[in-house]
């Protein structure tokens, strides 16, 4: 039983680390590049405007897409690694 607990405990810690890392990227793309850091990125031009505008209207959505699929793929693999899949 204690074996199961440590295994489950490790699985949950790995999940939390993955969520934390993903949410850092989530926040950097939207609140960072698209809003707060936009003035700093204004030197980088893209299609008639700056990188911050691109992140606000397109880039952040692409990052969100990548994150949800990456999380699903990684977690479904962790389920198997820890023997906790359905």
């Amino acid at each position: 039983m204690s074996d199961h607990n440590t295994n489950a405990e490790k699985y949950w810690q790995a999940n939390l680390r993955l969520i934390l890392g993903s949410l850092v990227i989530w926040a950097l793309a939207s609140y960072g590049c698209a809003i707060l850091l936009r003035p700093m990125l204004s030197g980088i031009h893209i299609g008639g405007t700056d990188l911050g505008f691109w992140f606000a209207q397109q880039g952040s959505i692409l990052v969100f897409l990548f994150l949800t699929f990456f999380y699903a793929w990684r977690m479904n693999k962790l389920d198997e690694e820890f023997g906790l899949e359905e």
Partner: peptide, 21 residues
């Protein structure tokens, strides 16, 4: 214009939270 990009990010970014949390 740019100021209303909030709707684009807000109404998609919530799905990242849904998927993980």
């Amino acid at each position: 214009g740019y100021a209303n990009s909030t709707f684009l990010m807000g109404w998609t970014g919530g799905y990242v939270l849904l998927a993980m949390l």
